[in-house]
Design a protein around this nucleic acid. Structure first.
Lengths: 204, 204
DNA sequence: GACCTAAACGGAGGCACCTCCGCTTATCGC
DNA sequence: GCGATAAGCGGAGGTGCCTCCGTTTAGGTC
């Protein structure tokens, strides 16, 4: 329970025990920033974000000294959300259903984050430490969902999960027209049907 | 004298006939900006530049809508200056002397522009149209100076001008210590002596 | 529950960016 | 020279960035 006898709590990613109010403000800032970045883009006014979160500019800058740090935090939060959703679905739904649902969420999620597209791409290309930490966890979570469905026999076993994820990402990239929402949904369904095709058990 | 009968003066790089006051302000802005960029770096306050040039912010932004445009203009101006100096020296001095003098100027010039180093490198790497227009004129001017000295017999003929220019650039890059000024001067002299070594005629 | 202190807050203030628009002036035809 | 007028000027103003520091408060101690 307690291992902080020595004072070297400098673990690479120390989850320092923030004070309750600090943690509240931090979370709220990330939440508001995610919305702002998604709609306005990553150039959204930091002061506006602070204002909407109900804190002063000083608080924002204390938590996130630069815009980049805030962007990273938002990205990390979103990734965690996707993984958590996968876990939750895996626990509460049938494998087949969980997979289909998560795929829809993934594309919908990506599409709403249009504003962050460019900077995320930059982040991925740079050698940011963030990437090392979050890289791969989404594909991993997705693979796990697919494996479960394969085991249940509702989708075919001969499809590479990375390929499917890549396809989903492409859909997001192409989400530009006025009706991209519906089209994306249909495309995802199509992919899901492809997975079902020739499975050992019919899936509803 | 006048070829503007038709209204298509949209040459790629139109040297539009600016009004006298506009041209004055423009030149003054470039001059001040060059100094500011060299000392403070390319992040120098644009408002400060406008103030020092004795014009309003509006005037600066009308001439140079973005910081990048201003940087480009400064760079272009500097390149033109170097080329003009080469022409002038070639006309008014002995080939041998002209070459030595220009080399010293080149290094001195580069050294004072430390603040622009990074952004210039960026400019060179990017596919800015600026580069296509100015690329090569400095090496060309330098080669011309060297050729004249070779013809006069005061330097040896078997040295590649591009190599020498590259050496001069290196000196500039290494100009970091407290006495870089003197050291640079000595290094340039050394290179010049190397060029003289074994020339057909002794040069003073 | 009272008190203490380090942690956290938040907003005023200083600086910079950039735009907008009423005023000034160079230039040209007469 | 003398308008006319388009070109140019410049600074006020609205916004955003970021810091600094006096004030507030969470969370532990007795």
């Amino acid at each position: 329970m307690q291992s902080d006898r020595t004072s070297h709590n400098q673990t690479p990613i120390a989850d320092k025990p923030l004070r309750a109010d600090a943690r509240r403000n931090r979370d709220r800032l990330i939440e508001v920033a995610a919305k702002a970045f998604a709609s306005t883009g990553v150039d959204a006014s930091l002061e506006a974000i602070a204002r909407e979160a109900g804190v002063g500019a000083g608080t924002l800058y204390r938590h996130f000294p630069t815009r980049e740090v805030l962007i990273e935090a938002v990205y990390r939060h979103e990734v965690e959300g996707l993984v958590a959703a996968a876990d939750e679905l895996a626990r509460t739904r049938e494998p087949n259903e969980a997979l289909a649902e998560w795929m829809q969420r993934f594309v919908g999620y990506m599409a709403t984050k249009r504003g962050m597209r460019d900077s995320l791409r930059l982040l991925l290309e740079s050698n940011s430490p963030l990437f090392a930490q979050t890289s791969g966890v989404v594909p991993l979570a997705f693979k796990s969902l697919m494996d479960k469905a394969v085991q249940a026999g509702t989708i075919r076993p001969d499809v590479n999960s990375a390929d499917v994820l890549h396809a989903l990402s492409s859909i997001y990239s192409a989400s530009d027209g006025p009706d991209w929402q519906d089209r994306s949904r249909r495309l995802v369904s199509l992919i899901m049907d492809g997975l079902r095709y020739g499975a050992s058990r019919a899936s509803k």
